[in-house]
Design a protein around this nucleic acid. Structure first.
Lengths: 340, 340
DNA sequence: TCTGCCTTTTGAATCGTTTCATAAATACGT
DNA sequence: ACGTATTTATGAAACGATTCAAAAGGCAGA
């Protein structure tokens, strides 16, 4: 028993299919009496519009696709929420997918979204955006880059100044007296990681006598942080960094867990620790985590705004919004009392 | 300039549309030479299949819809990940939406998914499922309930024994010497909350002299927990509970933040605290959080399995998987050393 | 009653893909 | 070389909603 179609509704109500469609889309073109007949038929048959058919006819879907780097990271969850809210106001809905920092997964989802003929796409790209995203442009899809600036001629973008954020974090460590800094993050090929590291390098370069070490990780989650932490605590005291800057709060959380398990070490006494993103849990970590705050929800909202703008007027020049990150100092870098 | 269609590809390659379709779907029915011609045309035109048209023809989409209670809760993020992985193995993809405990939002997304003619739907329902979800069944949609048992004749379901979980949590508080227990959770109309509370009531009933107080919250997030915590610390010592059981770890995190800010109170000395879900951050809270662990990813995987089963054989009886939750003891209820 | 104008209704055509019965081309055995 | 299998290729029909030109219906004024 296949679902009811407009044809079925029309037959039941004793009207033409066009009339049913009008009831659905332009009620004021239809007399009250007819509307009522049609509505009754719809309810009796449990009719539900077939979105595929609508889309086929319309040429485009009414949804917006969003490819996130990691849905399990509360930072991205916040970005997504901001986008969803903004889109809801504008009457579109957003569908999400998580690439988990995997270029192949990203490509799969982008393909999927393109096949669905989404209105537009918000992407925080994994690696080099050149290949796939450029192709999207060629196909006429509107793309807004999240957390990354691409070719300013091609895409609008919403990003945060990661170099500055890295600079803030490392400067803070140095200013609180740390001289052997370690940067923990997953691979230089990740733009965010590379930028934050670059900022840290800049800060360190301004202070002679301060060293910076790069500790790459496979992933950017709590577990990876825990592993780095375990490696750290096994080091001799002479080789131990006294300040650790993690590319995000998940890593920092993991590092913190490991370091605290080593009974001889204390945070921030022996190691100062700072993360990135300022997720909700940072303030309630065993030792409240200093971090770099980014306006997550606003990033999402802004991305939707730029997308809408570009859909409205495809000729308009691309806009590039860059937010400034902000240092949040808590106990893990030596503040006297936990600041919630 | 509209996107290229199979017709365009066929013209360019000098073959019939049916042949292009065969190249795409049944390559072994097409000679190597023809395949090559068609492939070249596809690349030259940048042809991308129109999913709406495919779906219209097929009658059903190839995706599975999933409506979560709260995408910002790491527990649900894990469930989603489990489902996504399992679906990927089976060759389908999953689209997510977050109802945020709002019945209207839930209804909107369910409608959206039904219009998209998804293969099936995984729903962790907000309130009474009777109305909307029953309608879906009437329309022939396969629905698997997450984290909730509905009418066993109508739906398969994957759930966790929340009553038992609540019982475990409250029993643990009582066994570690607490006598004035408070339960923090958002509204009895939320099934999960109600069940966990019921379990707690059962545990308390077994121990004369132990009291249980219900502290409802508006939401189930960190902020709501913080507010409850602030209200608690303003109480006179006599009215202060000595054991607090929160309906999830987000609430517990918030309560913890507030209590620790009140300099006179300590966890677990003055107040023991236990949460629910055992999210990644529980172990790295200021005071590591005791919690009730649920097999999140496995819940997601199992839901997909049940859905696939039911799609395969719609006549088969509905299956109901109930996982047992597990107590995880850490510092917030008095363990000697933080257990990570 | 007829005319002109406005509102309401009609139904064929369209979107892009897949399917399938049929036709064409090719291979094989004698 | 001929008929029979087998492999390839064809293109009209179908999916379900929307659109739009045209028809029908309603109403006021002459």
């Amino acid at each position: 028993m296949r679902p009811a179609s407009v044809k079925d509704v029309a037959d039941r109500a004793g009207v033409a299919v066009g009339t049913v469609s009008n009831v659905l889309n332009y009620p004021d073109r239809v007399s009250a009496r007819t509307q009522e007949k049609v509505q009754r038929a719809i309810e009796e048959l449990g009719f539900v519009r077939n979105d595929a058919a609508r889309q086929l006819r319309a040429g485009r879907s009414r949804t917006i696709g969003m490819v996130l780097l990691d849905a399990a990271n509360p930072f991205f969850a916040s970005v997504a929420r901001g986008a969803e809210d903004a889109a809801a106001v504008a009457g579109s809905s957003v569908m999400f997918a998580s690439s988990r920092h995997d270029a192949r997964r990203e490509a799969r989802y982008i393909d999927l979204f393109e096949e669905q003929r989404v209105q537009g796409l918000l992407v925080s790209p994994v690696g080099s955006i050149a290949a796939r995203v450029a192709e999207l442009k060629a196909h006429g899809l509107v793309v807004v880059l999240l957390d990354r600036e691409g070719d300013p001629e091609l895409y609008s973008s919403v990003s945060v100044d990661d170099v500055h954020g890295g600079y803030l974090a490392a400067s803070h460590l140095v200013e609180t007296g740390r001289t052997r800094i370690a940067f923990v993050g997953g691979g230089r090929h990740l733009q965010q990681v590379a930028d934050r590291l670059r900022g840290a390098e800049k800060a360190v370069a301004e202070h002679p006598g301060v060293s910076l070490e790069f500790l790459p990780t496979e992933e950017l989650n709590v577990l990876a942080g825990r592993e780095v932490g375990q490696a750290l605590v096994r080091r001799s005291r002479a080789l131990l960094p006294d300040g650790v800057f993690c590319a995000n709060d998940l890593l920092a959380t993991g590092v913190l867990q490991s370091v605290l398990l080593a009974e001889s070490l204390e945070v921030p006494r022996d190691i100062a620790l700072i993360g990135y993103d300022d997720i909700d849990f940072a303030s309630s970590a065993i030792v409240p985590l200093s971090s770099i705050r980014q306006p997550a929800e606003e990033i999402g909202r802004t991305a939707i705004r730029l997308l809408a703008q570009e859909l409205e007027d495809p000729q308009a020049p691309h806009e590039h919004v860059v937010f400034k990150p902000e240092l949040v100092v808590r106990g893990s870098t030596g503040a006297a009392r936990p600041k919630v």
